[in-house]
Simulated scan of single mutants.
Amino acid sequence: MSGLDSALAAGRRAAEARMRDTVRLYSQAPDVFDRVTGHSTPGVKTTLYQGRARVSAVAQASGEDTQAGDREVRLLEYQVAVPWGTTLPLGARVLPGMRVDVVASSDARMVGVTLWVTGAQFGDQATAWRISTEDRS
């Protein structure tokens, strides 16, 4: 094992040690509208990953105000780091619009928060797999 490989392995262990949250990454099919009842049924959720993660606010992000329907919302950026070796089901990719639910966290205020994926960063010399998200509440 080279010096770089040793350093990466140590960095990945350190990054995983800081992953104290539990998240669920999923895609959701469009809602289905029932014309008879007049109600919508939420689309089927397909879980791609559930497990350890570190959810952290992006330090330089100031948030952006935007309109969502009839109300104004503030988009706050978060980074979700999962173990570098995480694999997804065959053929699955993380795409913008997918969602991350915070299932468990030492910070009780984060539990139940839904984050919307805006992108993902890959790299063979990274210590974790980082997913860019935003809180649209």
Rank of each mutant, 00 (worst) to 15 (best):
T87I: 12
T87E: 14
T87A: 14
L88A: 12
L88G: 06
L88D: 11
L88K: 04
P89W: 13
P89L: 11
P89C: 11
P89K: 02
P89I: 07
L90D: 14
L90H: 10
L90W: 15
L90Q: 13
G91Y: 15
G91E: 07
G91V: 10
G91M: 14
A92S: 14
A92R: 09
R93H: 14
V94D: 00
V94E: 03
V94L: 07
L95A: 11
L95S: 09
L95I: 04
L95V: 13
P96C: 07
P96L: 07
P96T: 00
P96R: 04
P96A: 13
G97F: 15
G97M: 10
M98F: 15
M98T: 03
M98V: 03
M98A: 04
R99E: 07
R99V: 07
R99A: 08
R99W: 08
R99N: 07
V100P: 03
V100K: 00
V100Q: 03
V100H: 05
D101G: 02
D101F: 02
D101R: 01
D101Q: 06
V102E: 04
V102I: 15
V102D: 05
V103F: 06
V103Q: 07
V103G: 11
V103P: 09
A104I: 05
A104G: 08
A104Q: 09
A104D: 14
S105W: 14
S105T: 11
S106K: 06
S106C: 06
S106L: 08
D107G: 08
D107N: 15
D107A: 10
A108R: 11
R109H: 08
R109D: 13
M110F: 15
M110P: 05
V111A: 04
V111I: 15
V111D: 02
G112P: 06
G112Q: 03
V113I: 09
V113Q: 06
T114L: 07
T114Y: 08
T114E: 12
L115D: 09
L115M: 10
W116G: 01
W116M: 11
W116V: 12
V117Y: 14
V117D: 03
V117S: 04
T118H: 02
T118C: 04
T118F: 09
G119F: 06
A120C: 03
A120F: 11
A120W: 06
A120I: 13
A120K: 00
Q121P: 00
Q121R: 11
Q121M: 02
F122D: 09
F122E: 10
G123V: 06
G123L: 02
G123A: 04
D124E: 15
D124C: 07
Q125H: 05
Q125L: 10
Q125G: 04
A126K: 10
T127C: 01
T127R: 02
A128V: 05
A128P: 01
A128N: 04
A128F: 01
A128Y: 01
W129F: 15
W129E: 00
W129H: 06
W129S: 02
R130S: 09
R130W: 07
R130Q: 03
R130I: 12
R130Y: 04
R130G: 02
I131W: 12
I131E: 03
I131P: 01
I131Y: 08
I131T: 02
S132K: 04
S132C: 00
